[in-house]
Design a protein around this nucleic acid. Structure first.
Length: 428
RNA sequence: GGUGGGGUUCCCGAGUGGCCAAAGGGAACAGACUGUAAAUCUGUCGGCGUCAGCCUUCGGAGGUUCAAAUCCUCCCCCCACCA
């Protein structure tokens, strides 16, 4: 199947500049295409997953994608989809983040294709460009009239309180130049990006048309939404990052397993390499026995393998089983339980100085205040080693601690608020 | 610069002297149901608490009053129209 048709089937094609032309372009193997990632955070997050995966799909289809780090554009700030001007980041910080993301991309691509990706940084070709070059050789090809018509700019001009600085206004020119540069140097004629990138991408196709007298293609992905209207990619604790240091593999897996039925098939298409047949089978499962959640399990497993690997998935599954299995926490193997709760918040106390239960819940960040903790206990939201606590004044006793104090993992009490929030009380 | 309208608890928004920690909605959290789903229903939703109450909050600073989100003075900011 032509990769363009595959992307279409997956629902990943939102806008294309020339569908037939692009389809032909992608027919021959070894074509170049790129997508940029501005280093605005320490790690990629799942909002970056669609473009990242799309480049990987290209690689698997025999093409030569370029993974572009926005070391230069990250210094300017993309106005697309932002209703106010952004703080400029410190230059050293941007380059440091870019390097971190480079390592992350390389690991990701190698895990999923066995190949080393071509990762580039636009800082390398933008840093030595002079103001005169930029204004004469690039700027001359853009009329302000045309730039003002872009959504990213128009939206900001209408907001008189915030406006838009000349810096961010120029962002599309830099991004356009990237595309031109990659086209000239590597024959790259396709840029892909999120739904808000259309304006920036077409700045590039425009520049290529005028300077290189050739065609280039633009393709954007749809904005990812959930059926119930929640923002995709955010949990209570914020963005879901790909770095295990920022979002534990357990939390990552949990995010996917909680996908609504109404979204799960769409997400399987977006976020996994599963084939049309596999996904059709899972779709039938959702219809037949939704309570089994076969599709959610497949989605969570696939994406966890993709980002964290098979080994991490095995650990996560063991943890999930321990915490959501029906078993008595006391009957569980202590080591398994300890491993399952590895990423849960923990707090050490001296036994003699154990505070009251509401205070412990606050210390573990399970409740925002002691008052709220008492209310939660009254509402039956808190459990201790799996048993509901109904008395806020209940004190912890030695019997509550699971495991031997001198065992490998130490003794602890498992507290839970709601269905999914765990915390550990340890002696120390 | 002039005139008018505003700034309320996470967000929107009611409240024009005591019955105001402040209506209503949203978000969030929890409970029930179920499937670690959605929808629905219920509860909570400034902090502390021995649950009596205490403390902090209505753009900022003062003032009037037994009592102020509400009245007065000055200041800051936003919006609309005029210049």
């Amino acid at each position: 199947m032509n990769i363009f048709d595959e992307l279409t089937w997956r629902g990943l094609v939102h806008q294309v500049s020339d569908a037939e032309g692009l389809r032909k372009y992608l027919d021959a193997p070894g074509q170049a295409m790129y997508c940029g990632f501005d280093p605005t955070a320490e790690s990629l997050h799942i909002g970056n997953l669609v473009p990242l995966l799309s480049l990987v799909r290209m690689l698997r289809a025999g093409h030569k994608p370029i993974f572009l780090l926005g070391g230069a554009t990250g210094l300017i700030g993309d106005p697309s989809g932002k209703d106010k001007e952004r703080e400029l980041s410190n230059q050293a910080a941007v380059q440091a983040r870019a390097e971190r993301i480079r390592a992350q991309m390389e690991a990701f691509v190698e895990r999923n294709t066995g190949q080393k990706p071509r990762v580039m940084n636009n800082y390398d070709w933008v840093k030595d460009m002079s103001a005169i070059e930029l204004l004469r050789d690039v700027g001359k090809h853009f009329t302000v009239n045309w730039m003002l018509a872009k959504d990213s700019v128009k939206g900001r001009i209408e907001r008189e309180e915030t406006g838009i600085s000349y810096t961010e206004f120029s962002y599309m020119i830099l991004q356009g130049y990237d595309f031109y540069h990659l086209c000239k140097e590597y024959g790259c004629r396709l840029q892909i990006g999120g739904g808000d990138q259309w304006g920036n991408i077409t700045a590039g196709t425009e520049l290529i048309r005028k300077k290189a007298a050739g065609d280039a293609y633009a393709l954007t992905f749809p904005l990812i939404t959930t059926a119930s209207g929640k923002k995709f990619g955010k949990s209570e604790k914020g963005a879901i990052f790909m770095s295990p240091a920022l979002t534990s593999p357990y939390a990552f897996y949990q995010f996917w397993i909680n996908t609504e039925d109404a979204d799960v098939v769409k997400f399987l298409k977006y976020f996994t390499f599963l084939t049309q047949e596999d996904i059709a089978a899972l779709e039938a499962e959702v219809a037949r026995a939704p309570q089994e959640r076969a599709a959610q399990k497949a989605l969570a497993a696939q994406s966890t393998i993709m980002v964290h690997g098979e080994e991490e998935l095995a650990k996560v599954l063991a943890a999930t089983d321990a915490l959501f299995g029906k078993g008595d926490l006391r009957a569980l193997d202590h080591g398994t339980l300890a491993a399952a709760l590895e990423s849960a918040p923990a707090k050490d106390y001296a036994f003699a100085a154990l505070p009251d239960l509401p205070q412990i819940l606050v210390d573990l960040n399970l409740c925002p205040s002691k008052g709220q903790a008492r209310k939660d206990i009254q509402a039956g939201a808190v459990s201790l080693n799996g048993d509901k606590v109904s008395d806020a004044a209940r004190a912890l006793t030695e019997d509550d601690f699971l495991g031997e104090v001198n065992a490998t993992h130490g003794a602890f009490v498992v507290l839970r608020k709601g269905k999914k929030n765990y915390g550990l009380v340890r002696l120390g």
